[in-house]
Amino acid sequence: MTADHTLTVADLSLGYGDRTVIESLDLVLPPGRVTAIVGANACGKSTLLRSMSRLLRPRTGQVLLDGEQVHRLPAKELARALGLLPQAPTAPEGITVSDLVGRGRNPHQRLLSRWSAEDDAAVAAALEATDTVELADRPVDELSGGQRQRVWIAMALAQQTDVLLLDEPTTYLDVSHQVEVLDLLTDLNRTRGTTIVMVLHDLNLAARYADHLVALAGGRLHAVGDPHAVLTEDTVRAVFGLDCSVIIDPVSGRPLMLPIGRHHVAAPVDVS
């Protein structure tokens, strides 16, 4: 299961219409690790993720999966290796949880082929992993936001890919559900060796859960590497234009960013 797929971005430029969003970006996403992409609003995080899963054609440069251009790979073959959970997927009205999760089996099925026992097993495994077995026969419309997000992740799990891309998997979730989702992704990474690449906007959660942090600013790579090396006061100032203080999170031992605004700053802080 843990055939390590390496996703590489080489001299990639992306844009919509006249607007360039990403400019000549080079990036290697380490296999079997959890990578988080962070950056200010509209810095091109989601655009980069869409391009990595073939949704957006590069202007120049390429996205390579084990040295093969993803835009040249057959669609289903790519979908068996690399999955994507978009930011706002739509559930068909009234669909049940297990049917929705079953949609994740699409890349494993041939034209007009029958549903197999293997598909049932994959769906069951995905439901168990996301703790949604009890919801299996309920319509997705009736679920709460946190449950719904778990179901979508279950669909991506049923796809059984070695690389999983997620666009802001924690949006609209309250803090306990955010932690729950990120824990689940970590389980997936540790037990199956799945490469996780996710866009997150909460810097502190990103630093806590990612092994590898990518900071984008204005469509360019600003910093990349270990969270301790990337999440620094300088990076935050350059990427977000925000003064802050970075301390070591006593819970996780990872860096923790404390923003410094114009008010409520108790003691003078050294931000030099």
Binding site: K76, A79, P92, R103, L165
Partner: peptide
């Protein structure tokens, strides 16, 4: 059926 999930999700599931 896949297209019902949105273009992005359908594409990620191997639909052209």
């Amino acid at each position: 059926d896949m297209l019902q999930l949105g273009d992005d999700a359908a594409s990620a599931l191997g639909v052209r």
